[in-house]
Design a protein around this nucleic acid. Structure first.
Lengths: 213, 213
DNA sequence: GTCTATAAGCGGATAGAC
DNA sequence: GTCTATCCGCTTATAGAC
């Protein structure tokens, strides 16, 4: 599994082959077939392994401050500064996830992963509602909104060079949670000056696609 | 390009080969090499073509009601009911986007696409602020939030069986826009009963990953 | 522009020795 | 369990005829 992980990192999903895995493993191709019946079987096993890695990299203690717990989850998935190891785990998982478009078994696994993540978020929101910290919102909807935004931003981080966009989305999500769950108060930090330094890639780019405006 | 599109639809990115494209085209493999120097060159050309298709499938008239324009854009990307053709365009684009994790040229193109989309959204928000329809929010942040959520939900639609989750995220996003941009009023529709029929996949699934709770 | 034929190589997978 | 050797199919890409 670790060798597969390394091979995936180096060559991407498209470039993943038994030879490459064997190389990382420092064993022969044939030896891999002793442990797995086929490449597909190995891949299915790996997807499970990768899901575990990803989820334990996200797992977080939940305390008795729901708003902090929520922020903690978001921070785990979408840290302002992504360290190299997390970047790698995420791009591998995203690479596999892409295969779910055309592969049934992959799709099932990914669906289960998102289900678990969404439940985690929803449970935190529910707890907050019960203990009176949060307003009586539709926890399911809110959880799905959070998950979609976080996934979208992770996805952008892995497939574009729009780092600032990721941070902006994250900040806006936090502000949204404050307004929706807690009420009107804005958090200690500012409201319109956290956005780095305007050196962003999407600033001052007047849209090449349409003629309107 | 159209033959490549069809081949991609039938076999996915992993299964895309010159033979397959030639087959769709009803010409020989060699004839393709007369028009493109290499598979990579063809792929780069196709990415551009696909981006155009995608963007023109999203393009929308912008009128003088910013809130409606915004809703229109979201509806185009994340319709409540996705028709077959749109589903296909989206899964092809998503499939290509996945390659951006490991391919520089792909990454650049995808970055440009997201930049354009974000600008479109931001311009609508700016227009709304100027004409007094919207509050004086940070249009950049809001636009990135919208884009991340929409992308995340599209991504979920293409890689999971969580249809209800997509609709939930979309509804929550609309509600968020109403609150943030317009003010307190909630839209005509309900607040906690639009969520289909609870037959969703993520309901009643008590999270297998942690022991807390 | 398009074809057939073919080169050269890598992919997954197996046989059989150790 | 691991190795070497090997099979076979398919891939990208080219040569050269029409």
């Amino acid at each position: 599994m670790k060798a597969t992980y390394r091979a995936l990192l180096e060559h991407g999903y498209a470039g993943l082959s038994i030879s490459r895995i064997a190389e990382e493993l420092d064993k022969s191709k044939a030896s891999i077939y002793y442990h797995y019946d086929s490449k597909d079987a190995l891949l299915v096993a790996f997807l499970e392994y990768a899901a575990d890695q990803f989820e334990s990299s996200v797992a977080t203690e939940t305390g008795d401050d729901p708003r902090a717990d929520l922020e903690h989850v978001v921070e785990k998935l979408l840290p302002r500064q992504l360290d190299e190891e997390q970047r790698q785990v995420q791009s591998v998982v995203l690479g596999l996830r892409g295969q779910a478009v055309t592969s049934e078994p992959f799709r099932e696994q990914i669906t289960a992963m998102d289900d678990r993540l969404a439940s985690t978020v929803r449970e935190i929101v529910d707890r907050g509602i019960e203990d009176g910290t949060f307003r009586d919102v539709d926890s399911w909807r809110v959880a799905e909104h959070v998950l979609a935004t976080v996934n979208g931003a992770m996805y952008a981080r892995a497939t574009t060079d729009r780092e600032n966009a990721v941070v902006a989305a994250r900040d806006s999500l936090s502000a949204y949670l404050d307004v929706t769950l807690v009420g009107e108060s804005s958090p200690p930090e500012s409201e319109s000056s956290t956005q780095a330094d305007e050196t962003s890639t999407q600033e001052a780019q007047p849209s090449t696609q349409e003629d309107g405006t």
